[in-house]
Simulated scan of single mutants.
Amino acid sequence: MIVVIGKHRPDLAELTDVVFVDGWSGIPDDVVASMEAVIGRVPGDVLARAAKLRWVHSPAAGVDADLSPEMLASDVVLTSSVGNGAIPLAEHAMLLMLMLNRDVPRWMRAQAEHRWDRFTHGELAGLTLGIYGLGNSGLDLARKAEAFHLRVIGVRRRAGEPSPHVEQVDFGTLLEQSDFVVVTAPSTPQTLGRFGAPEFARMKRSAYFICISRGGIADDDALLNALRSGQIAGAGLDAHGVEPLPPQSAFWDLPNVIVTPHNGATSTGTARRGEQIVRENLRRFLSGQELLNVVDKAAGY
């Protein structure tokens, strides 16, 4: 039996042994005991009762919320939809870079006030983009940035793996040379809190920090201090340490910060590619083939 959790329900009309449910509440024990695959998140207590479960697929690209102690200890194969949102996330990073570089909020304020405000602004050509995390989103961003005549440098966990359009450097070099530092890395024990006060102090005072992947990779207090003190020039934040971002958060009102509500990848294309991954993995699961996007539970992605 295959169980699909959540409101989004891929077209699986050709399959007969599929159960669609909105959530785990009220699901009979016999269904839990007989399911072999789940599309959606499986709580630890359910996982412990699912004796036949062999595969769980996360509809999300990041799986930090799926890696319960029970999942980490189990032999259940976990796959993800990593890569489905790479294109819009890279586009969102470029959008934030352009908005910060050209001070687009100033134009928007002038428009709201019907005020003709011409000023000298920046341009991206010739600047250096540093990408922290060279997975699908990071590599797509590198390709786009190169077309804007940016120098692109980056770091990845497995240093030395091929990274088209990117000059791989060490972390210190990325901090010191980048005009934009863009975080595209997943949330793992190794990346959480990676950007703190010492890291922001090594960045150029004219540099911008952008996070489009997961909150918590930057220490929020350290980032706020860096922004308020002028240690860095500004930030574009789509991913936040606490989500939804609380109304009282200082990030909302800082003049050098652009906040978006973690929906840089909320596009029709992301949903379409995610469904394609689900359908292909279902085909492979039913035919006994190797699955796509198998998560390294120890690494966290």
Results as ranks from 00 to 15, higher is better:
D30R: 13
A48E: 14
L292R: 10
S287N: 12
L12Y: 03
E199N: 02
L254R: 06
L245I: 03
R284Q: 07
W24R: 09
D22L: 13
D22C: 11
R202H: 06
V77S: 08
P255Q: 09
Q177Y: 06
P105E: 02
R283M: 07
P247T: 04
A265D: 10
L227W: 12
R158V: 12
G274T: 02
V278P: 01
F251T: 01
R205C: 07
E123R: 15
H240V: 10
A65L: 12
R157Y: 01
R151T: 13
A13T: 14
L127R: 14
H165W: 06
Q168S: 11
A112S: 15
Q231F: 07
V19M: 09
A73S: 15
L175D: 02
V77P: 00
G288V: 10
R273K: 14
R118V: 13
A239F: 11
V152T: 01
V18T: 00
V38C: 15
E176M: 08
A271C: 05
I131S: 01
T188E: 08
V32H: 00
A73Q: 14
V82P: 00
V77N: 06
G126P: 06
V3K: 05
S229L: 12
D219A: 15
D103P: 05
I232P: 05
A218P: 02
P261D: 09
S25N: 14
Q177I: 00
D22E: 14
H262G: 04
A13F: 14
S178V: 07
H149F: 13
H262R: 06
N84L: 12
F200S: 06
W116L: 14
F119N: 01
E290H: 13
V278E: 03
I232D: 00
E161S: 13
R284K: 09
R279G: 01
Q168T: 12
A93P: 01
D238M: 11
A207S: 11
R49M: 08
V56T: 09
L286C: 10
M203F: 05
E14C: 06
R54K: 15
S206W: 04
N136D: 15
A93I: 01
L291H: 02
A65V: 13
R109C: 02
A93T: 02
V166W: 12
H240P: 02
R157F: 00
T260L: 03
E243N: 12
G85F: 04
G85K: 03
R156H: 12
E176L: 05
L129V: 11
V155T: 11
V294A: 04
A233V: 07
R158F: 08
T184S: 13
S81L: 03
I212H: 05
T268C: 08
I2N: 00
L15T: 08
L282K: 00
A145G: 05
T173D: 02
S249M: 10
P59G: 00
R284E: 07
F20L: 10
